[in-house]
């Protein structure tokens, strides 16, 4: 009783006017409609010259953005949920570094022209497989070891990533300037030089991954309560964790092999999607992350192309924005 007296009374007249927060479904629908509008605008607005050529080129880029948007956003949400950490991104596992090292090694051995000469479906597949193999070996090794746990896994991932980066940097030093130029183009994500032939496969993998993840949305909710609670509720924690991490690495590897490394994009998509959807349940969170992530990519690309005439700057802008967001979140939270 005493505490009701001490507590300042809220103005009662305002109560009935209080705006009720829209449901997660409604919010997702809004973002979905926005995405549809932006996609249509991106495909059909401001066409100069041949309509057919423009449409073909734009469709290819749209496909690449769909794959990257889906893979990075979904993978980041999954990764943050199983690690129970909202400031991590899957790039901490060192997959980007594997990609950079493989690209660099190719150029060192066969020269800069090998990059364009070998482009195609086979290369995307092989690169994806190399990265997935790396991740799977890492998981198997670390989760079967008696002392293995998630933190050790992340630490080893970071360390290996740094080692690969250093090795790649060293190799880049010995390249000729031309080779280095050709290589450095590949080390930024690019939507405009994606090979259309690999898109159907990439989109297929995304659909498959989406179906696989959709079947375990409820298990993901439980998984983010932590090992003990998840075990009590009947999950085989280690198996679920490994499965999710393998899905994450397939998605990240695919997106990286297709469009190149994107450090902060997944982080932006996951963080903003969590805020927008206002629910911790994956059944709401994952669609929102996919829709918002893709909206961000397509919308930004549209603006960059037609307002700033800087279509190649997408990842640079994303990294700057994402890095800023990361710092803001870290400072507000005060810890990792």
């Amino acid at each position: 009783m005493a505490d009701t007296l001490l507590r300042p009374r809220r103005p009662r007249a305002l109560r009935p006017l209080r705006w009720r927060a829209p449901s997660p479904r409604a919010r997702t629908a809004v973002v979905g409609v926005l995405l549809a509008v932006v996609v249509l605008a991106y495909l059909f607005a401001f066409v100069r010259g041949s309509f057919e050529y423009a449409l073909h080129r734009r469709l290819t880029m749209l496909g690449a953005m769909l794959v990257a948007g889906f893979a990075q956003s979904v993978a980041t949400v999954l990764f943050q949920s199983v690690t129970r950490n909202r400031v991590l991104t899957p790039s901490i596992m060192g997959l980007d570094s594997v990609y950079v090292l493989v690209q660099t090694a190719l150029v060192v051995v066969w020269g800069g022209r090998v990059l364009t000469a070998t482009d195609g479906l086979a290369k995307v597949v092989v690169q994806t497989l190399v990265m997935v193999a790396f991740a799977t070996v890492l998981f198997r090794w670390l989760f079967t070891a008696r002392w293995g746990n998630l933190n050790v896994l992340l630490l080893v991932g970071v360390t290996l990533g740094m080692a690969f980066d250093s090795l790649a940097t060293f190799l880049q030093r010995v390249l000729s300037p031309t080779d280095y130029d050709l290589l450095s183009l590949r080390l930024f994500a690019r939507m405009n030089s994606v090979d259309a032939a690999s898109l159907p496969l990439a989109l297929g993998v995304c659909v498959l991954a989406g179906w696989f993840v959709a079947r375990r949305v409820h298990r993901l909710d439980v998984l983010q309560l932590g090992r003990d609670v998840a075990t009590n509720l009947g999950l085989d924690h280690r198996r679920e964790l490994t499965t999710v991490l393998v899905v994450v690495s397939v998605l990240i590897a695919l997106s990286t092999a297709l469009v190149g490394p994107m450090t902060f994009f997944g982080f932006i998509a996951a963080t903003v999607a969590r805020q927008l959807v206002g629910s911790e349940r994956h059944v709401h969170l994952l669609p929102m992350a996919f829709l918002f992530g893709t909206l961000l990519l397509v919308g930004l690309q549209f603006v960059l192309e037609h307002v700033f005439a800087a279509s190649g700057m997408l990842t640079v802008v994303l990294d700057v924005v994402g890095g800023g967001l990361f710092l803001v979140l870290l400072l507000r939270k005060g810890r990792l």
């Binding site: 298990r219 439980v222 609670v229 509720l233 009947g234």
Partner: peptide, 10 residues
């Protein structure tokens, strides 16, 4: 969440 072992999320 305590109902998860029985309901499997539904």
């Amino acid at each position: 969440f305590g109902r998860f072992p029985h309901s499997r999320g539904r």
